[in-house]
Computed example of a mutant assay.
Amino acid sequence: MYPSGQKGLEGVRGRIEESCFISGATGKGKSTLLRTFNGLIPDFYAGVFRGKVRVLGEKPSAKIAYLVMQNPYEQITSLRVIDELVFPSVQGGANYRDAKKDAESLAEEMGIGHLLERTTHTLSTGELQIVEILSAILSKKKVLLMDEPFAHLSTRNVRGLIKIIGDLFTIISDHRVEFRELFPQHMDLGVDRVDYPDVQAEIGDVIFDGLLTLKKGEIIAVIGDNGSGKTTMLKKLAEEMKKAKVDFGIVLQNPNYHLTEGTVIQEVGDEWVLRDFGLEGLKDRHPHALSYGQAKRVSIARVFRRDILLLDEPTAGQDTSFRRKLIHLLRGYGKTAVIATHDERLAKCCDRVVRL
């Protein structure tokens, strides 16, 4: 139990003997479970911990297991990509020249060799996520723990990554369950299965004409590979709309960029929206004390007061039922939206798809 009184996880028993895919609804404790495997819980996170966890027969430790966190921006250690890749292995005692050679080889295999001399802060979220995952692989730890590693990756890059980690002992927590069958072992922490009825699209007249032409009530998906410019497109749309004095709201991939109030209800500002997003139980919590998935949902809910929504990877960190729920809510509230996404199932629910 965390200091806030929230139960992170309860009643989990089992044995993971080979690479495992962990699924479960948002807030069910997937990240909490991963943190117990490298000792972050209970050694770093405060709260009450009861139970026993062993990793390869030993007490959980960062010396055994390497955790790739959900938000890649929280894990950056270096300015250059090549230095970011070699940092864990050099910290572990490897020779820099040998580590650099290994990093260059792995980067070419994954198709990001052209990024090696780039600065980490110029990468897209997906590109940075790939870098952090490869850095973990290069650390040569016995166990790799990955929290939502596929959230910001294109299908092509997900499949490339799975091929690379094929022979490694990897435990992954992710909502993109379409890739679950590619792992020999599965664990389900509980999925909230809710069927949201389709709402008939009512598309009206053109309400914005710029980089994209938008009609009232229209939902557009912008898709493309990592680094193709989806986020850049949303930002340019935001600049155009600001100049045109259009009522819009934008949600970028890192929810913490948007959360500035002291409680969830203050962020959202509407009890009905709070309820429809399933956030009632979190209304008095501080937004920065939430899980990534919960914070992402709050960041989207807070812009529902706007007419046009620009959403960057809105289903990252969200369970599969949220895909349909998001479209249901957008239509139900009569919103116009542009959604940058790698979620192909979400894109199919939109009125129009723009590929970059």
Rank of each mutant, 00 (worst) to 15 (best):
R275F: 03
L274S: 04
T232H: 07
G334V: 12
V273M: 00
H258V: 09
L234D: 03
V246F: 07
E261H: 14
G269W: 08
Q294G: 13
S228H: 06
A289C: 01
L311C: 10
S321K: 05
V268P: 01
H286E: 11
L290E: 09
A295P: 05
L311V: 03
E240P: 07
R331Y: 06
L282N: 03
N226F: 09
F304E: 10
A289W: 02
L237D: 02
F304C: 08
Y333T: 09
Q266G: 05
G262A: 14
L237Y: 00
D307N: 15
S291R: 03
E313L: 00
K245C: 12
K245H: 15
A289K: 07
Y257P: 00
E218C: 10
D270K: 02
D284C: 01
W272P: 00
M241A: 09
K245T: 09
I327M: 11
L237W: 00
E261C: 15
L279C: 09
A244K: 14
I223V: 15
E280A: 08
Q253K: 06
L326R: 13
D284F: 09
S321H: 11
W272N: 10
P255L: 01
D284Y: 13
T231C: 06
Y333H: 14
V298N: 00
K283V: 02
G278K: 09
G229L: 02
G293P: 00
G334L: 12
E271I: 14
L282W: 01
N256F: 15
G317F: 02
A244M: 06
N254R: 08
E239W: 05
H286C: 13
G332P: 05
D284E: 13
R331F: 06
R323F: 07
A289H: 12
A244L: 11
I308C: 03
K325C: 14
N254Y: 08
P314H: 11
R324W: 15
L330D: 11
R323N: 14
M233A: 08
G278L: 06
V298F: 09
K242Q: 10
A221K: 01
D312S: 02
R285S: 08
S299Y: 05
Y333S: 13
K235E: 02
